[in-house]
């Protein structure tokens, strides 16, 4: 998935209108970023060929950092 596609997938995951997220948003400011969304993100990354743990997610503070994790090995990691 391209960065743009991942952003759109994140919009969908967080039930935001398509195109809402730009990447610079702080996760702590996103009301919808909760434990269910974390599990959904892990599944989304898995679909994209990336294995992500909750521990790695805890190190991210922005959407862009999070999406870096969702890239398969060797793609922007």
């Amino acid at each position: 998935m391209t960065q743009q596609e991942l952003l759109l997938a994140m919009d969908d995951l967080l039930e935001l209108p398509p195109g809402s997220l730009k990447g610079s948003e702080a996760l702590k400011d996103l009301e919808q970023w909760n434990s269910m969304a974390v599990i959904g993100f892990i599944a989304m990354a898995d679909t994209n060929g990336a294995r992500v743990s909750a521990r790695q997610i805890a190190t991210c503070s922005t959407v862009a950092e999070l999406l870096t994790l969702a890239q398969p090995e060797g793609v922007g990691k």
């Binding site: 969908d12 995951l13 269910m36 969304a37 599990i39 959904g40 892990i42 599944a43 989304m44 679909t47």
Partner: peptide, 13 residues
Amino acid sequence: QITVPLRVMRPQA
């Protein structure tokens, strides 16, 4: 077992 909220679970899964 696939741990994922239903709303974002793929039909194939």
